[in-house]
């Protein structure tokens, strides 16, 4: 009985070894047919209404995270998400970007303090709600804000106005007390409109971070740092590079991925077969 079993096992092992040799032989030689298959672009048609794939899921569950856990993000993960940014598209493939990663608590605090001070200064000149309704001061400051708004392309839209007020009051942190801040610098020598390329880089970084379970938030107020020459020098922001945007990175409080949310629908003008349709 035992002999037969041993014999069977020996036979099996021999058969497996023979099969492995055969496979190795076929792997080494790539036929012309195999190469043709590799050359061809794969077409992956999906059924209508199919489930989200991983990339779509990352896009749909991404939120701008403004409350972070205290825990620092491991350095290799930050390197990893910036690497994804490096592979984003750019005009003329000029790759007009550079990164500054700030993980130093004292430095983030310094950046925060400066931006908050600028916002405090700003509220005096732009926040007319500090003055009683009907007063002359209110009317004057409101006119001033409206003029500034036209010059600064919607910098004083009601949403940033609320934010400026909140930052000045200390209710809202510019860098959201995130453990890591990535500053995105734009190379002004870039082809065409290099700021668009910064948008692409940031989107890649943000989505990669989302897929790794990190939370991110774009911080437009970081631009205020540009007016502080000493801080710029300390951080390493120098021409031809300019500070374009900042992205906060950290572990989110709560699980914002457990529920997708609604967003506005936008008009799509759809031209096909000589006809125009409006879709939403």
């Amino acid at each position: 009985m035992t002999d037969t079993l041993d014999h069977d096992i020996r036979n099996d092992i021999e058969a497996l070894e023979a099969l492995e040799c055969e496979l190795e032989a076929t792997e080494q030689v790539e036929t012309a047919h195999d190469r043709t298959l590799r050359r061809r672009t794969a077409v992956h048609d999906i059924e209508p209404g199919a489930d989200w794939n991983d990339v779509e899921h990352a896009i749909l569950t991404r939120r701008s995270i403004r409350k972070y856990k205290g825990r620092q993000v491991p350095a290799h993960m930050v390197r990893r998400i910036i690497e994804m940014g490096r592979f984003s598209p750019s005009q003329g493939n000029c790759q007009p970007w550079s990164f500054i990663v700030v993980r130093d608590k004292a430095m983030i605090a310094q950046m925060e303090a400066y931006c908050a001070a600028v916002c405090q200064g700003m509220t005096a000149g732009v926040d007319y709600t500090n003055y009683p309704e009907g007063s002359e001061q209110r009317a004057a400051i409101q006119a001033n804000t409206q003029a500034l708004n036209r010059d600064n392309l919607n910098s004083f839209h009601p949403v940033p106005m609320t934010a400026i007020k909140s930052i000045a009051n200390g209710r809202f942190a510019v860098f959201h007390k995130a453990p890591t801040v990535i500053l995105l610098l734009v190379d002004k020598r870039g082809v065409g409109v290099p700021d668009i390329d910064i948008g692409c880089v940031g989107t890649n970084i943000v989505l990669a971070a989302q897929s790794l379970g990190l939370g991110t938030c774009w911080v437009g107020f970081s631009k205020l740092l540009s007016s502080n020459a000493a801080l710029c020098e300390q951080l390493g922001i120098a021409p031809p590079f300019e500070l374009s945007e900042a992205i906060c990175v950290g572990y989110p409080i709560g699980n914002p991925t457990q529920q997708t949310i609604s967003r506005q629908t936008h008009e799509i003008i759809w031209w096909e077969g000589g006809e125009k349709q409006i879709l939403y």
Binding site: P48, D51, I261, S262, Q264, T265, E267
Partner: peptide, 18 residues
């Protein structure tokens, strides 16, 4: 927002559609 911000060519809020 009214005036220059009045939102145009925008439909209602929707959850992700497949």
């Amino acid at each position: 927002f009214v005036g220059v911000y009045e939102q145009k060519r925008i439909g209602p809020f929707e959850f992700p559609r497949r």
